[in-house]
Design a protein around this nucleic acid. Structure first.
Lengths: 151, 151
DNA sequence: GATAACGTAACTTTATAAGTAACGTGATAT
DNA sequence: ATATCACGTTACTTATAAAGTTACGTTATC
C-alpha cells in the first residue's frame, strides 16, 4: 500500500488549528493537505472520537481543538489514530511449527518491538506545542542567517 | 503491499543451512517456506550478491553458506537484503513549503529515525548462531517442563 | 545427452491507505 | 421557511511493492 501519512498530516493540521481561532473547514484543510474534504473528515473523525478535536456542522462550522496543544503529546495523537501499523516488515507465519523458524521470527519481532518502544517514547516526549516552538526557532534561525549573510 | 517477510524467512533458511552439510535446493527451501523455488532464488540471490551464501548449479547443487553463522550478524543479513523499507509510515510530501508542515514531518521522521537506529542496534548485537543457540534453549526448556509435569 | 538446479524475465495477486464521488443530516443565515 | 454550508458516512477506485507464479535459458553433473 501507500505510506500511511496520517500522523504527520494530522500533526500539521493540529498546529494550524492551534494558530487560529475560528473552526477550519474540511475543505480548507483539504487544500492544505492536497487532498479532498472527504478524506479529511474520515481522518479527523478519528481524532474526534479520541476527544482531541470537535467538529461543528453548518455555517461557520468546522474543526477545532478540545484541549491546549501543550497538553497534547505526539503519542496521544498516534494513539488517537488507532496506533496505525508502524512496520512494513514482519513474519509470514505467526505460528510456525519449526523451532528454527520460531527463533527467526522471535528475533525479528524482538528487534521490531524494541524499535516500536523507541518510537513511542520519542513521541511521548514531545507535545504538539513543542513542534510549533521548533518552527518558530526555524524562522529565527533563518532570519539570523539572512542578516549574517548580508554583512 | 504485503508485509515484507524476507528477513525472518532468510534467517530461518540460514539456520537450516548451518545445520546441514549438503547444499539445499531452492525446491527444498521453497517447501520449508511454503512458497515456490523461483521466489527462493530471487531472495537468496540478494544474499549471494552480498557474499553471505553461494549457489551451485547442476546435480547436487543448491545453496550453501560462505561463512560461519557465528560471524554473521542479523544486521549483516538485513543489509544483504538491501535494507528493506522498515516503516509503513511516512510523510506524504518530502519538501513542503509550509513551515508547520516541515516541523510535523521532522518530528515524525525523527521518531522513525530513532526507532530505526534501535532496530539496527538490536540486529547488530545478535549472530545467526545465537538464534540457533536460543532454539536449543527452547528445546531444553520444553524437555525440562515435560519432565516436571510428569512428576 | 538427459537431467538437475540455478538465473532471470514477465506477469498476476494481495493488502491497505489514499483518493474520489455521492448523498444524508443538521446548523446557520436571510 | 428555505437556501446554503459543513459534517457524517458509505461505497468505490487507485496506487504501491512484495509475494506468488509461470516459463525458459544456462550450466553442471551423471
Amino acid at each position: 500500500m501507500r505510506n500511511d501519512s496520517r500522523l504527520s498530516r494530522v500533526l500539521h493540521v493540529l498546529m494550524h488549528l492551534g494558530e487560529t481561532e475560528k473552526p477550519m473547514t474540511s475543505e480548507l484543510i483539504g487544500q492544505m493537505l492536497n487532498t479532498n474534504p472527504s478524506l479529511v473528515r474520515r481522518t479527523m473523525g478519528l481524532l474526534r472520537k479520541a476527544g482531541v478535536v470537535s467538529s461543528a456542522k453548518g455555517h461557520g462550522g468546522g474543526w477545532y481543538l478540545e484541549k491546549p496543544l501543550a497538553e497534547l503529546s505526539l503519542a496521544e495523537v498516534y494513539a488517537a489514530l488507532g496506533e496505525p501499523k508502524l512496520f512494513a516488515i514482519g513474519a509470514s507465519d505467526d505460528t510456525p511449527t519449526c523451532l528454527l523458524e520460531q527463533s527467526a521470527n522471535a528475533a525479528t519481532q524482538g528487534a521490531l518491538d524494541a524499535a516500536r518502544e523507541r518510537f513511542l517514547d520519542t513521541l511521548a516526549n514531545q507535545s504538539v506545542a513543542d513542534l510549533i516552538e521548533q518552527s518558530r526557532d526555524q524562522i529565527a534561525a533563518f532570519r539570523n542567517k539572512a542578516s549574517t549573510d548580508a554583512e
